[in-house]
Structure formats: C-alpha cells, structure tokens
Amino acid sequence: MTSLAVPVSRAAETLNAIRDGLRTHALLYSFALFVLTAAVLESQVLGIPLDLQMVMIFSGPVLLVLLVMMIIGLAKETVRLARTGHQGSLALALGAKLRDDYFTPTRISNGLHAVIFMTVYMVGYTFIKRAIPLAVPFQWDVTFMEWDKALHFGTHPFQWLSPLLDHAWITLLLNVNYNAWFFVMFTLWFWQGFAKHDTELRQRFLLGFTLTWFLGTCVLGTLLSSVGPCFYGKLIAGPDPYVPLMSWLDTANTHYPIWSLNVMDELWRNYETGTGVVNGISAMPSMHVGTSVLFALLGFASGHRWIGWLLTGFASLIFIGSIHLAWHYAIDGYAGAAVAFFGWWAAGKLVKWDRSLRGV
C-alpha cells in the first residue's frame, strides 16, 4: 500500500464510521430535536426569539477542554514511556498514541455525534430555562420554604447546618466543591461522549444526562417555578427567613472569596434586565444535586465501585453546599435526586429498546 493510500483509507474509514454513527446516535438526536422543537414552539407562543448563542457557548469550551485533555493525555503517555524505558523516538510514539487512540475512526465519530447532539439539545434547553419566569412566574418559594421547614421538624435546614459549617474556611471549601461540579461534569461527559467504542453505558449516560436536565428544569422547573433562598428576599414581600444565611455568606466573603455571591448578583441582574449570558433561574428541583447523583450512578455502573463511592461523596457535599450557599431549599435536592434516579432508569429502558431494534 502506498503512503498516499494509507491516509486516504483512514479518511474513508472515518467517514464510514461517522455515517454509521448517525444510526447509532439516532435516539439521542431524536431527543435533542424534540427538546429543540419544544423550545421553538414555546418561543412562538411567548413571542420571543430563540437564542442561538449557545451553539458557540457550548461548542467553544468543549473543543478547548478536549484540546487540554489531549495534551494532558500525551503528557501522561510521555511519563509512562519514560518509566518503561522507551528507547525509540518520542515523537513517533506520541504520534502512534494519537493515531491509534485519540484519532481512531470510532472515537472521532462518537465525539462528533456527541458534540452535535449536545449542542442541538443545549440550544433548546437553555431557551426553555431562560423562559421559565415568562411561561410561569415565580410563585412557589413561600410554599417550598414552609414545606422545607415543616419537613425538618420546624427548623430551616440551613439552621441545622450553621453550627457545623459557619466557619469561613468551610464555606470556602464548599463553594470550591460546588464550582468543581463543572469540572466533574465535563470530565465525565468527555469520558463517555468521546469513548473509543459506543456502549450501552455510554448511550445510557448521554441520554440520562440530558433527560434528567430536561425533566428537572424544563418540565418541573417550569411547573414549580421558584428562585431559591438566595433570592427569596428580592422576590417575596415581608420577613425573609434567609437573612441570617445571606449575612453569614457576606461575612465569610470578607475572609475568603465566596464566588457564589458574585454569580447570584449577576443572575439577578440579568433576570431583571433580560440580558446576559449567565441567565435562567430555577431552584426546584436542584440539578446540581440531580446530576451529581447521576454521576454516582454512572460510577457504579462502570464497574469501578471506587468511582461510584467517590462521586457519592461528591454528590453529598454538593447537596450540603446547595443549602449552605443559599442556592436551594433542601427539598430541591431531594427532588433533584429523585429525578436523576428516574432519568437513569428511563434512559436504560430506552437504550435497551433502541439497541434491540438495531440488533445490538
């Protein structure tokens, strides 16, 4: 085979893998198009344009993170080669790693379809989330506050936690962990989205991830529209039971930067003005908690129980942080976890059905 025939053959193999991937990912594409269609219909009903900026907001960071992860992977491979006493050319060895691992036809196909499907989904999802107060004005916060207090024996959950957590360094660590959710989310999404082989677990996670977000935010978040403890006093007239909590966060912020406060300010400002990229307020159910529970389910299903337990601990800290940082009522977290379990179960059923249709 000539030197020219090799890349031509590889390109043809990659194109065939991408073509075959259309059927492999048909279930995911169908769901993404369903969410996008729902967003288009809602935009027509509400009389506001569909915002397409999420195409770049999502795709840009995804490609950047992909590049960073590849660089990290090549660095790890370099260390591995050094430890094993590799005697050949490092450049050729890393080139083989790229060719035989990162740029295999199946991985390129899986990654491409995962990005396209997720981008289409995000355009629909983010519009529906931002449109929540227009579709159903925020009206559940007093009810959720009362339910939260009643369920926890007449005491607000943050009051149970305050004696243990009202130390500036603990608040900082919980805030760091809460922000680490983005890193964990992207890492797990890349792990499955850019997997070398398409598996039932991969499909289940990608569908379960988006299904959980859709059910939790677009459906329940709209029907049960609420802003959460941090915005309670801005929305509800009369006594604000969360003043002590917000006062503590302000105090902690004088010792260490509590980034949640800046995000809250930007979110509320964008809500009032109807502008800004960081937009869309939805407290019930908590998708930080819901998706973190989903991550733990993925960990256990992957066969690596240590990953499952590690992510279970992470989800527990996210739940505690969601209360202590005033983002959510405790019942938001309970509801988010329930949605995650349902989303994981439903995705499993749908993926099995789809794979049986394809004879997999």
Rank of each mutant, 00 (worst) to 15 (best):
A5Q: 13
P7V: 05
P7C: 04
P7L: 07
E13R: 15
L15D: 09
A32V: 07
L33I: 13
F34I: 13
V35C: 03
V35W: 06
V35P: 00
L41P: 00
Q53P: 11
V55H: 10
S59Q: 01
V62S: 11
L66R: 14
V68H: 00
M70Q: 11
T84D: 10
G85M: 04
G85F: 06
S89P: 05
L98A: 04
D100Y: 14
T104V: 05
R107P: 02
N110G: 00
G111S: 06
F117G: 14
G124P: 02
Y125W: 06
T126K: 12
F127I: 04
A135F: 09
P137N: 07
T143D: 15
E146K: 14
W147H: 02
L151Y: 06
G154A: 05
P157Y: 02
F158R: 10
Q159E: 13
L164R: 04
D166S: 11
L172F: 10
L173R: 09
Y178V: 06
F182A: 08
F183V: 12
W189K: 04
W191E: 08
F194E: 03
T199L: 03
Q203R: 15
L215S: 02
C218K: 10
L220P: 04
T222V: 04
T222D: 07
L223N: 00
S225E: 01
S226D: 05
V227T: 11
C230E: 11
L235Y: 13
L235T: 10
I236L: 06
P241D: 01
S247H: 14
T251N: 12
A252G: 02
L261Y: 03
R269I: 05
G276I: 08
V277W: 08
P285R: 03
S286K: 03
V289W: 06
L294S: 00
F295H: 01
F295A: 00
A296P: 07
A301R: 14
H304P: 03
R305P: 02
R305Y: 12
I307Y: 15
G308M: 08
L310T: 12
G321Q: 01
A326E: 03
W327P: 03
A330M: 06
G336V: 00
G336Q: 01
V339Y: 06
A340K: 01
G343T: 00
W344D: 03
A346Y: 09
A347L: 07
L350W: 13
W353H: 12
W353V: 14
D354T: 13
R355W: 14
R355L: 10
